[in-house]
């Protein structure tokens, strides 16, 4: 039971990072119908920039959390600018092109960012300095570290803010209108190009935060860390129903929990035949199972085959 609760906590922490990244995929997908393959690499850039800032300021004697705060701010600005540029240069000119053309440019951007990062920061694993108080709180056998708590609160707050913004503000209305009926939205005076740019910028800011979280949580950053993370997050977005904001959150957290349960129990469940090295198989297997029974994800609209 304690193992179960411990894995649940770990899973929720991991899952809330997935959820933040998944939101970036789902926002863009909802509005453009595009898998932004480069999103995972924006997460990586976020982690790298935070790390660079932390290293740069580490001589100043500022406390760890302040360093991270400044770092994540700079990373967010860099990533937002990057997200904006990527959309402008690689996606916007292809808005009316065959559907797979922007997917290929997205792959191109992903390769470009990874290799740019490799040139700037090298091929080695970079370690994050321990910025937070180590040790952990223990509640009835389940331990949780300060950074886990911070991740939970920060991601919860950001998801809450995003939901509020999309549902309650004028900008959110414009985003939803553009996603549902781009032509109508334009007729009603919504500048769809602006809305799309803003969507990319918001997604990139979330990516910067998520990147910092991953870096600080695992203590390392690497130029290709964005690839697998992006893949997982995209999986989470699809699991929840891509294009659906609550779906991305649910999918992210669910995937995190599934993975850590898989890591914890797969060996025991299968009598040691499949160990925790199969945890990714387990995650994909659950995804496939969900999609076979709910082809549009858990919270996706179940559109019937309307002629």
């Amino acid at each position: 039971m304690e193992i179960f609760l411990q894995q649940l906590v770990n899973g929720i922490v991991l899952g809330s990072i997935y959820a933040l990244v998944a939101l970036g995929y789902t926002l863009v997908y909802g509005i453009l119908g595009l898998i932004n393959f480069a999103h995972g690499d924006i997460v990586m850039i976020g982690a790298m920039v935070t790390l660079a800032v932390v290293h740069f300021l580490s001589g100043t004697g500022l406390p760890g959390p302040a360093l991270v705060g400044i770092g994540v701010l700079v990373a967010a600005i860099v990533c937002m600018a990057l997200g904006y540029l990527v959309e402008r240069i690689a996606y916007r000119p292809l808005r009316d092109a065959p559907r797979l053309a922007p997917l290929i440019t997205a792959i191109g951007v992903s390769i470009l960012l990874q290799n740019l990062a490799m040139m700037i920061w090298g091929r080695e694993y970079l370690s994050f300095p321990p910025l937070f108080q180590s040790g952990s709180f223990t509640f009835s056998g389940v331990s949780i570290s300060p950074i886990q708590i911070l991740i939970l609160f920060a991601s919860g707050a950001m998801m809450g803010a995003l939901s509020w913004m999309v549902k309650r503000t004028r900008l959110g209305n414009a985003m939803r209108a553009t996603a549902q009926h781009p032509e109508v939205a334009t007729l009603l005076g919504v500048d769809s190009n602006l809305i799309i740019s803003i969507t990319f910028v918001i997604g990139s800011a979330l990516a910067a935060v998520a990147g910092t979280m991953v870096g600080a949580y695992y203590g390392i950053a690497h130029y290709d860390m964005g690839f697998m993370l992006g893949l997982k997050a995209f999986t989470a977005a699809v699991l929840g129903g891509i294009g659906n904001i609550e779906g991305a959150m649910l999918g992210g957290i669910l995937l995190g929990v599934i993975e850590s349960m898989g890591a914890g129990y797969l060996g025991a469940l299968t009598g040691g035949v499949f160990g925790s090295n199969y945890q990714d198989v387990f995650a994909f297997f659950v995804l496939i199972l969900v999609l076979v029974f709910r082809p549009s994800g858990l919270l996706g609209e179940q559109v019937g085959e309307r002629p």
Partner: peptide, 19 residues
């Protein structure tokens, strides 16, 4: 890394000019 960087750029350019 320059090699793959250029590879990424060529993917983008080809699609932009010949979708």
């Amino acid at each position: 890394s320059i090699r793959m960087l250029l590879f990424g750029i060529s993917l983008i350019l080809v699609m932009l000019f010949r979708p």
